[in-house]
């Protein structure tokens, strides 16, 4: 699995502001990778370019052994006419993913939400439901744009570790503003910086913490420092 950004430059139509300038970087192998950076720097735009929903950029994005790319984000909603359980049943009906669905419901702590309308859930619950439904789809790369925002730290850790355990062969691009979180759970952190800085993107190794694997605190601290310096 390989994702390669080659000399990506981009500016929005009708503006002179350059969002990206000659970005070049690589993500390889399955697992959790992160796109990190301050607000407004272009993380979502770059993720959408990867998901092929933003075009008009120069340079090249090459992917190998990745056919299905899904982009999910934290403001998504499910239709109001169905409750959460009905919706999850509906979207897994044809795929035969019932077992996986039940496992995700259990480990994401969604059992109590199944009979509720989406709008009645808390923002954290909504984000968990949304992520769960994406995980029940066919994908090679899942972009999680703030997909676990408003979820408490303990539940978040439980969810990320569960995803890693359930989908060892899949690639994830995790977009978050939480420094400790990306340094701890991701194996590679792409720090996206302002277009005035060169290079605009810096790659830093993360801890890639897994269930049952001890945490290397020194390495984690060093990663965090490197990320802070880079951004």
């Amino acid at each position: 699995m390989l994702i390669e950004f080659k000399d990506i430059s981009f500016q929005y139509r009708d503006t002179d502001t350059c969002v990206f300038k000659d970005i070049t970087c690589q993500i390889s192998g399955p697992g959790f990778h992160s796109l990190f950076g301050p607000s407004g720097v272009g993380k979502t735009t770059l993720a959408k370019m990867l998901a092929r929903s933003v075009n008009g950029f120069s340079g090249e994005i090459m992917v190998q052994q990745i056919d299905n790319i899904l982009y999910s984000y934290n403001l998504e909603r499910i239709p109001g006419w169905a409750c959460v359980g009905e919706h999850l049943t509906e979207i897994t009906r044809a795929s035969g993913e019932e077992n996986r669905r039940d496992e995700l419901i259990k480990s994401f702590g969604l059992r109590g939400c199944l009979d509720s309308r989406f709008s009645r859930l808390s923002m954290g619950q909504q984000n968990r439901v949304n992520l769960a439904r994406y995980l029940l789809q066919e994908f090679d790369l899942l972009i999680m744009d703030e997909s676990l925002a408003n979820v408490d730290e303990i539940t978040k850790e439980k969810i990320i570790l569960k995803i890693k355990a359930m989908f060892p062969g899949k690639c994830f691009l995790y977009i978050s503003h939480n420094l400790a979180e990306v340094a701890k759970f991701c194996k590679q952190i792409l720090v996206l910086r302002d277009s005035a800085k060169t290079p605009q993107m810096i790659s830093i190794d993360g801890q890639n913490h897994m269930k049952g694997k001890p945490l290397d605190k020194k390495f984690l601290e060093r990663s965090m420092l490197e990320i802070v310096h880079a951004s």
Partner: peptide, 11 residues
């Protein structure tokens, strides 16, 4: 916010 999921999953 609702349609995105159905669009990207081809539903």
């Amino acid at each position: 916010d609702i349609e995105h999921f159905y669009e990207v999953t081809g539903r």
